[in-house]
Amino acid sequence: MSAPTITERAVERKTEAQPRRGAGRRAGSALSGVATRSVAVLLLLAVWEFAPRAGLIDSTFLTPFSGVVRALGELAASGQLAEHIQASLTRSLSGFGIAVLIAVPLGILIGWYKTVSDVLTPLVQLFLNTAALALLPVFVLVLGIGETSKIAIVVYACTWPILLNTITAVRNVDPTLLKLARSLNLPPPALFRKVILPASIPTVFTGLRLAGAAAIVVVIAAEMVGAKAGLGFLINDSQYNFAIPSMYAGIVAISVLGVGFNQLLVVVERRLTSWK
């Protein structure tokens, strides 16, 4: 989960480092940048399309990409796709949202007290590294197979990366800035709002992006275990019914959704840290 974050950072830095050029050349280089970044994906889609067609892979098991697109179109036309996407998004976004509301304030509080964070960080690490999906049966056992258990497990999976990154962020605020704030007798609310929070944003967002990816993974798995709607259900159900194109359509929809959510977080982060 952390690997894509690191590569994206590197890419961002590279593009920033490019010297300023004229408008025309900039547009040209932006275009060639898009081309560079899409070439591998396009290659994958080409292989996906032609490998089954050429008989390299049994097309019963791997529908050519055009077939998947057609299945996506049919699902969209019948309104099923929207229904499944809506179900998955509602679960993952409400879980993610609740986790943000819990973990960010809690992380700031824990991070601010050195002893508290020294005591609690190992516990957070433990929870972070306990695969949320391993706890899925526990959630189902306690909360049933309804919406509650699905949202709860998303909350669980999202909380730890956000919490850990927020704690780290607060612990690593530049001490001279804190000294400055102290020398100005800044009251605690202003200290948090004007110094600690803005200084923590970049690291908190690393946690948010990890949590965003986790939210999608976990919701899909939970839907595969027991649900009547959602992309996870769609994939599993299609596989049972041997509706292979629909199955791939569900998979493509998830990956588009995941990339989209991550991009959204990147955009929000850029806006909040435009000073960088």
Partner: peptide, 8 residues
């Protein structure tokens, strides 16, 4: 170390 707020 200046202690400037980098976001301002």
């Amino acid at each position: 170390q200046y202690a400037l707020l980098p976001w301002r």
